[in-house]
C-alpha cells in the first residue's frame, strides 16, 4: 500500500507541474516564444503572494484574488512593452528572456535575500482524507490537483471554444493574415501572455504552499514544466497533464530510493522519452 500512496503523491504533484507547463506551452503555441523567465515569474508571484498575505492578513488562497489579476496585468504589460519587440527571429526572444530571468532572480535576491520562504495555509495543510485503510491523502494536494485539472480544462475550452481562442489559433497560423482580419496581433499576443501568467500565478502560489522557495528556485520550475510538455507531447494540453503526472510519479518514486534522487529520476524519465519517443507520449492529434 505504501507504493500506492507514493504514486498518489506523485500524481497530485504532477498536476502542479502540468499547470506550469500549460502556461509555457500556451505562449509557445500562440507566438512560438519560449519564455526562459517562466519559472522566475512563477517564483516572483509566490513572493508577491507572500507580501500580499502579510500586508492584508489573508491566507494564500484568498491572496489569489489579488495575485491572479496582477499577474495577468504584468503579463499583458510585459508582452506589449518588451516581448512583442523581440518576435520574428529565433534568437532575440530567447536571449531577452534569459536576461529577464537573471534580472528577476537578482531583484528577488535584493528584496527578499537568499532565505527560503514558504506560504502557510493553516490547518488545511495537515488535513487528510482516508480513502482506504492504508491510503490517506492530504486535502490540500487534492484540492490543488482538482484546481489544476479544472484550469487545464478551462484553457482547453478557451482555446477551442471561444472567440479569443480562435484568435489565438488564427494568429499562430498566420499573423499577417490575422491582421487582415482586423486582429491586433500585438494585443492577441499580450492576451496570451496575460492568460499564461494568470495560470502560472495560481501554480506559483500552490507550489509555494508545498515547498520552500528562494529567489533561484525558478529555473527548476521551468524545467519541470518543460519536461512535462516534452513527455506529454507538444501542443496537447491533456498530453501535458499526463506528462506532468508522469513526471510527478517519477520524482516521487525516485525520492523513495534516495533523498537526492527525486529530480534526477524525473530527468531520467524525460531523457528516456526523448530518446525512445521524441514526439512525446500523447502528441497532438489532428482537429
Amino acid at each position: 500500500m505504501e507504493w500506492v500512496n507514493i504514486i498518489f503523491q506523485g500524481v497530485l504533484l504532477g498536476g502542479l507541474y502540468a499547470l506550469f507547463a500549460a502556461g509555457l506551452s500556451l505562449i509557445f503555441g500562440v507566438m512560438r516564444l519560449v519564455n526562459i523567465a517562466h519559472g522566475d515569474l512563477i517564483v516572483a508571484f509566490a513572493y508577491m503572494a507572500y507580501f500580499v498575505m502579510a500586508a492584508l492578513h489573508i491566507g494564500p488562497f484568498t491572496s489569489l484574488a489579488v495575485i491572479v489579476p496582477a499577474a495577468a496585468l504584468i503579463g499583458y504589460g510585459l508582452q506589449r512593452g518588451l516581448l512583442n519587440w523581440t518576435l520574428g527571429e529565433e534568437l532575440p526572444p530567447l536571449l531577452v528572456t534569459i536576461g529577464l530571468s537573471v534580472i528577476i532572480q537578482n531583484l528577488l535576491l535584493v528584496f527578499f535575500t537568499f532565505d527560503t520562504h514558504r506560504l502557510h495555509a493553516g490547518d488545511i495543510e495537515i488535513a487528510s482524507v482516508q480513502f482506504l485503510p492504508d491510503l490517506s491523502v492530504g486535502v490540500l494536494p487534492l484540492i490543488q490537483f482538482a484546481v489544476a485539472v479544472a484550469i487545464i480544462a478551462g484553457l482547453q475550452i478557451v482555446f477551442y471554444r471561444t472567440a479569443l481562442g480562435r484568435a489565438f489559433r488564427a494568429t499562430s497560423d498566420d499573423p499577417v493574415v490575422a491582421q487582415l482580419m482586423g486582429l491586433e496581433t500585438r494585443h492577441i499576443f499580450a492576451m496570451a501572455m496575460a492568460l499564461s501568467l494568470a495560470v502560472v500565478a495560481v501554480a506559483g502560489v500552490f507550489i509555494a504552499i508545498r515547498t520552500d522557495f528562494n529567489p533561484f528556485y525558478g529555473p527548476q520550475l521551468l524545467i519541470f514544466g518543460f519536461e512535462a510538455i516534452i513527455i506529454g507531447g507538444l501542443g496537447s494540453l491533456w498530453g501535458t497533464l499526463a506528462g506532468g503526472i508522469l513526471l510527478g510519479i517519477a520524482q516521487a518514486l525516485g525520492g523513495q530510493f534516495n533523498v537526492g534522487w527525486p529530480f534526477l529520476a524525473g530527468h531520467v524519465v524525460f531523457l528516456a522519452v526523448l530518446i525512445v519517443r521524441p514526439q512525446g507520449l500523447f502528441p497532438k492529434v489532428a482537429l
Binding site: A163, R166, A167, R169, A170, S172, D173, D174, V176, V177, A178, M181, G182, L183, L287
Partner: peptide, 20 residues
C-alpha cells in the same frame, strides 16, 4: 492563406470578429 488549423466555419468567423 487560410488559417490551416481552423475549420472552414472558424475561418469565416475570424473575419466576423471585428464586428463591423
Amino acid at each position: 492563406r487560410l488559417f490551416s488549423s481552423l475549420s472552414v466555419g472558424e475561418n469565416l468567423l475570424v473575419g466576423g470578429q471585428v464586428g463591423r
